[in-house]
């Protein structure tokens, strides 16, 4: 018999980027930009990425890890305030197993000539498949990728 469990957790990561809030926002809002820092990782094989960036719109990313396990993000935008705030809910699957459901808030605030980004994630981890510390580690690495992307300048 399957033992069902839910572990609730919240974590917050604060970052400063040397880029204006509108450039940081564009890195989340535009598919070609987001694909470069969010949907591609060395050694991982991206299978599908769709981004319908509007309230009620869906984002879907399916990506195979080096070990072959397919990680699927399926999200929905709950709130968007251009250059200021993005809120989305999403679930994660490893292959066919749903491992978590989350609500993520990304807040952007002008900080000198750059941007302070406050990333808050409220999670429900399912059936012992993932932990807050693993999720936070993965998120920190994504926000590093965003810094690297912003440092390279914008694509045309």
């Amino acid at each position: 018999m399957t033992q069902h469990s839910v572990t609730h957790a919240t974590f917050t990561i604060v970052r400063h980027y040397d880029a204006s809030p509108d450039r940081v926002f564009a890195a989340w809002a535009q598919k070609d930009r987001k694909a470069r820092w969010y949907a591609s990782h060395a050694g991982w094989r991206s299978q599908d990425f769709t981004l319908d960036f509007r309230i009620g719109g869906r984002e879907y990313l399916s990506i195979a890890a080096p070990d072959g396990v397919v990680h699927t993000f399926d999200g929905q935008y709950q709130d968007i305030v251009p250059n200021e705030r993005i809120i989305y809910s999403y679930d994660m699957h490893l292959d066919r197993t749903r491992i978590s459901v989350s609500l993520t808030t990304v807040e952007l605030k002008a900080d000198g000539t750059g941007t302070k980004l406050i990333f808050t994630e409220q999670d429900a981890f399912l059936d012992g498949h993932d932990t807050a510390s693993q999720r936070e580690t993965g998120t920190r690495s994504l926000l590093d990728s965003l810094a690297a992307f912003l440092a390279t300048g914008d694509p045309d």
């Binding site: 839910v6 709130d79 809910s89 459901v101 989350s102 609500l103 429900a124």
Partner: peptide
């Protein structure tokens, strides 16, 4: 919009 929430019923 006044709120967005994640709700779990167990």
């Amino acid at each position: 919009r006044i709120s967005s929430s994640l709700a779990t019923v167990e």
